[in-house]
Nucleic acid binder design. Structure first.
Lengths: 197, 197
DNA sequence: ACCTGAACACCGTTCAAGT
DNA sequence: ACCTGAACACCGTTCAAGT
């Protein structure tokens, strides 16, 4: 392997994306700069422009990866569920859990300027895929008569709003809890008191 | 009036805060710069430092004003309510309505770096006052036996999470609605399907 | 007291030049 | 093909100097 290693990197693009995640985790999305990214990756401040149009595109790719991970986390979380409602609930907890484990990544995914989503189709798609995952769990609940039928999209958006609200308040430090365990317990309280089940 | 007008402004501080709101509404919190703020207010880029320690302090004062308005909006919105649950619901709708009418202000209030809240006590206080307003509506519901008693704080945080989730998803353009009316209808759907009433 | 211009250390982005 | 340094137009913040 690594025949024809050129200049500094055989795969600068991947190296940059990896560094970007680390850097964002350290300094937050607002403090994230392309120049510092280049510095850490050991290339000139200009090298990233060979692989990304601009700062927005780096953000977009980080967003894509984040939503893919979020989708996987929800799918994984739901597996241990007993019954449709329980799977929906566990998917919701996985959503919140993801936000707690990667707060900066979560911030990029949801607080980046709208243009990131409109300019990069893959970012919008990855986000939609995550929503569709939630939607499928809601649909299962309706199929098994554990949620009122109809309004599937509305119920999915309701579930999304709920877990998103908890996740946002938690990651921005507005809840009076310090540990992940406490926050997840509160999340269960929210879900249990809001699902009609 | 305006005896002793000095230099450019009798009240540069107020003028700056007013301009700041306008500027943030135009370019968003991320695009907001002190230098542009000074430019618009007609003073040198350095003049704001006579009235604010730094960019953070301007953000903190904008935050304070935002939370005060939010509190007022909830109080006003609740007044037309018939019964405690209805007042809580209307306060929640007012929260979402505020976010829709001043999305950038809302963003500053909730997405500014944590240090803004920790360094400026008045920002934290104004935020707490808004929460206490929501809390008082929840308490009324419990007093009138329209919500299960106990866990008052948890129920208030549940209500907060819900309206905050809807507000955030709406203001960041993740809901498939274009008009305020549609979003508020969805908000009603969420509230009606989540309150035990 | 309040305002100013020059200065410093940063950005994102572009471009001509190197291998 | 990929990388580099110089350059440009911006920031936030500081400071000595003006009225």
């Amino acid at each position: 392997m690594r025949r024809r290693k050129r200049y500094h990197h055989g795969n600068l693009r991947e190296a940059l994306l990896e560094s970007a995640l680390q850097l964002i985790a350290e300094v937050g999305p607002a403090g994230f700069t392309l120049r510092e990214l280049a510095r850490r990756t050991g290339v000139s401040h200009n090298a990233p422009y060979r692989h990304f149009r601009d700062r927005d595109e780096v953000m977009a790719k980080v967003t894509v990866q984040g939503f893919k991970e979020l989708t996987q986390a929800m799918l994984r979380g739901s597996q241990s569920g007993a019954g449709a409602i329980d799977r929906l609930k566990r998917a919701g907890l996985a959503y919140i859990s993801f936000a707690l484990q990667r707060p900066e990544h979560f911030t990029v995914m949801f607080d980046a300027p709208t243009r990131v989503r409109t300019d990069y189709a893959d970012a919008a798609e990855a986000s939609e895929e995550a929503f569709n995952t939630l939607l499928s769990f809601v649909k299962s609940c309706q199929d098994e008569r554990q949620l009122p039928s109809g309004n599937t999209h509305e119920f999915a958006m309701l579930a999304w709003s709920m877990v998103h609200g908890v996740a946002k308040l938690a990651t921005t430090g507005r809840l009076p809890y310090t540990s992940t365990a406490e926050i997840l317990k509160f999340a269960e309280f929210v879900i249990d008191n809001s699902l009609p089940a």
